[in-house]
Simulated assay, not measured.
Amino acid sequence: MFRFFESEETKKLKSHLTNLGALAKIDGHIDPAEINFIISIGTRHGMRASEVKDLLSGSSKITPQLPSNDSERFDQIYDMVEMMLADGIVDENEMDFCMHMATKLGFKKAVVGVLVRKISTGVKDGLSREQIKNDAQSFLNY
């Protein structure tokens, strides 16, 4: 009922967390590391852990909100790839979902595979988000 009064930023955050929840569920089980990762993103943006859990349980229906700029788009796909790696197992369905979501977020189909792999490799190599983002900008040409 009060969702009408939510800011656009809050709606985007909830949409993003819901997308991460869908990714977590795609391999048939939700790893505790994945849930903790999603909760950490929510709490970092001011949500309580219980709110994030309610959101992930599907008790509230969220209308998808697309990011409004390139930086937000990158941050969302980065979070998805980082969560895909959270349980230490990269399922092919998770990889496909990340590439599908990258396209939905507005990245060109021709570069989504390279983008997801570049983020994945950068995270595994311990590079910072900003280093990976700067490197990705050279071939993304948003």
Score class of each variant (00 low, 15 high):
I119W: 01
T10G: 03
I39W: 07
L17Y: 09
F2K: 11
D70I: 13
G58P: 09
F2T: 08
M47G: 05
L23A: 06
Q137C: 11
K53I: 15
F107V: 03
D87I: 05
F107M: 06
D54Q: 12
N93P: 00
D79L: 13
S68F: 04
R44Y: 13
N36G: 12
E9P: 00
R3N: 09
D79S: 14
A136F: 01
S15V: 05
H29S: 15
G58D: 03
V90Y: 03
K104A: 12
F74L: 15
G46H: 12
E51R: 09
D75A: 15
D135T: 12
A49C: 03
G21P: 02
K11S: 06
A136G: 01
S120W: 06
A110V: 10
D75L: 12
S7G: 11
K124Q: 13
M84E: 02
E72N: 11
D91K: 09
A86N: 04
M95G: 01
N141H: 13
Q76V: 00
P67G: 10
M80T: 00
G122S: 08
H29W: 11
D135P: 00
I26Y: 05
G126V: 06
E72R: 08
N93D: 14
F139C: 13
E94P: 04
K11A: 12
M84G: 07
M47Q: 11
T43P: 02
E82K: 14
D70L: 13
D70T: 10
N36H: 10
E72I: 01
F107K: 08
G88D: 01
D135K: 06
L17A: 07
N93H: 14
M1F: 14
D125R: 06
G126E: 04
E9N: 06
L105C: 01
D96R: 11
C98I: 02
V114C: 02
D91I: 01
D91S: 10
N69L: 09
D79F: 09
D31E: 13
S40K: 13
E51V: 01
L105P: 02
F5R: 11
L85N: 05
H16G: 04
L85Q: 11
K118C: 09
V123S: 08
T18L: 11
K25L: 11
V90E: 05
N141C: 05
Q131M: 15
G21W: 06
I89V: 13
K109N: 14
G28V: 08
Q76T: 04
S15C: 08
M83D: 06
S68C: 03
L66A: 12
G28E: 06
Y142T: 10
F107R: 07
G28M: 03
V81S: 03
T10N: 08
I39F: 04
T43E: 14
Q131Y: 07
M1C: 12
S57W: 08
R44C: 03
A86V: 05
A86H: 03
E94D: 13
N36Y: 00
M1E: 15
